[in-house]
């Protein structure tokens, strides 16, 4: 078949870079997203996820590199890109002085949908996110979760080819988060749309995404399906806290084990964790190193991140990049 390659990628990014002054928020990022998939961008706060999304949605101009969204260049044809995409931002962007229906009606109009189609579509999307009975209530009376659902409904209302969700469940409680995940999955089933979502919640990436790009300090450090990313480091992950970390670390490395030093201790990835634990003890005993604690769990994308960077994803949130903090304050 001749055109398969062309039609399967809806987003194509090549060496995309964004500088804020001297600070590179996104550095030479390249990837492709296939039509119909849920593509996750996972990384700590300040990793460059939002900057990346803003470049793909034409809100920020890249410093260098190239990006095609739905076949259009984000720099040369921003108007066409905007027609093809929907976005749900991290921060709320609803008009709280209007009702849910009016917000959607406004949206339909600025995307040029005609009256009949608009009315049909409004009831359709409200139904999909379970807000049909709240259509004529002012948005300022909505809870956080309801507002987010309405934003998602609005994001895909105009039949975008690509829907960007920037931290769709940020700041929501666990139950509401699961609720939103269900709606996103339903959306993928019912609508012909490709979804790109950024998140710093491991569970979100693992539960929702077909493929995940792990991003840190503006670079993609791993990209694959969730299963393959996990398999790559071994199915188990062991955390050990010992007295003399660096000595033990070198010792383990000499045994050809995947080890990385974390803030708490050492993390070891293995395909057979249960059998490795006794080995760790005998090794420690032989070299008179005292083990304080050992824990074994199934490896997650968090461990992939730790193994690649030596840091945890969540810990980063407190120690955001100083440049990013300044930038956020200005807005």
């Amino acid at each position: 078949m001749l055109f398969v390659e062309d039609s399967s990628e809806i987003i194509k990014v090549e060496n995309l870079t964004k500088f804020f002054g001297d600070f590179a928020a996104v550095k030479e990022v390249s990837f492709e997203v296939e039509r119909g998939e849920i593509f996750g961008i996972l990384g700590p706060n300040g990793a460059g996820k939002t900057t990346l999304i803003k470049m793909l949605s034409t809100l920020l101009k890249p410093t260098s590199g190239k990006a095609l969204v739905a076949g259009y260049d984000v720099v040369k044809e921003p108007q066409n890109v905007r027609k093809s995409i929907g976005i749900v931002f991290q921060e709320p962007t609803l008009d709280v002085e209007l009702t849910a229906r009016e917000n959607l009606d406004f949206h339909g109009r600025i995307y040029g949908m005609d009256g009949k189609k608009r009315r049909e579509r409004i009831s359709e999307v409200l139904e999909l996110v379970g807000l049909s009975d709240k259509a004529d209530i002012l948005v300022k009376k909505f809870s956080g979760g309801m507002q987010r659902r309405l934003e998602i409904a609005r994001g895909f209302m105009h039949f975008p080819k690509v829907l960007f969700l920037d931290e769709p469940t940020l700041g929501l409680d666990v139950q509401t988060r699961r609720n939103i995940w269900e709606y996103i999955e339903k959306l993928r089933r019912d609508e012909d749309v490709t979804i790109i979502l950024t998140t710093h919640y491991i569970e979100e990436a693992e539960n929702l995404c077909d493929r995940v790009a792990i991003i840190d300090l503006g670079r993609i450090i791993a990209l694959d399906t969730v299963e393959r990313l996990r398999e790559g480091i071994g199915k188990d992950s062991i955390e050990v806290v010992v007295e003399n970390g660096s000595v033990f670390e070198n010792l383990l490395k000499s045994q050809n084990l995947k080890v990385v030093k974390t803030a708490d201790g050492l993390m070891i990835s293995a395909s057979d964790g249960e059998k490795l634990i006794p080995r760790l003890f005998s090794l420690a005993q032989k070299h008179r190193i005292e083990i304080h604690s050992v824990s074994l769990k199934k490896s997650s994308l968090e461990d992939v991140f730790v193994l690649l960077t030596g840091r945890k994803i969540r810990e980063e949130s407190a120690a955001m990049h100083p440049m990013m903090r300044i930038k956020r304050m200005r807005k």
Binding site: Q79, R82, I85, F89, P92, T93, L94, I110, G112
Partner: peptide, 14 residues
């Protein structure tokens, strides 16, 4: 400040 401007700015209108 309340974000609504972004909703307008990413839309196709000039």
């Amino acid at each position: 400040q309340f974000g609504f401007l972004r909703e307008i700015m990413v839309s196709p209108i000039s």
